[in-house]
């Protein structure tokens, strides 16, 4: 989904859409680029995590499920927060939906922490 957003942004750039490119929309441009970057990279993190799951003992399934849920939540909250925060902007400030970003960031850090703890 967020990989596809990159295609949308490229189109906005290519067709010189003012709502994206005008200098008054600098904050929107930043937010949507961040949404694309975070969404895409977190998708990759999820894939890598999924690859490691197969290598874990079955006993760790419950813990892995908790990590997976947290990671997926972060994967949605972070880019969606950026994207929605860019829909309505106030000069250099994004819209309030950007508050989803720190929540997503905390969940991401939590997931990474649990993953790190589980490494032996």
């Amino acid at each position: 989904m967020f990989g596809g957003l990159g295609l949308v942004l490229e189109s906005l750039q290519g067709f010189k859409i003012a709502a994206y490119l005008d200098v008054s929309n600098e904050t929107r441009r930043l937010m949507w680029r961040l949404a694309h970057a975070h969404g895409t990279l977190l998708a990759v993190v999820n894939i890598l995590f999924a690859l490691t799951v197969a290598a874990r003992p079955p006993a760790a399934a419950q813990r892995l499920s908790r990590i997976s849920t947290t990671l997926v939540a972060a994967t949605f909250l972070l880019p969606i927060g950026f994207f929605a925060g860019g829909i309505v902007v106030y000069g250099g400030d994004p819209g309030v939906a950007v508050l989803l970003v720190p929540i997503g960031a905390v969940l991401l850090l939590l997931a990474l922490f649990w993953i790190a703890r589980g490494v032996e």
Partner: peptide
């Protein structure tokens, strides 16, 4: 500029 990019421009 950081908070008022349009006005700055």
């Amino acid at each position: 500029r950081a908070c008022h990019p349009s006005e700055y421009a």
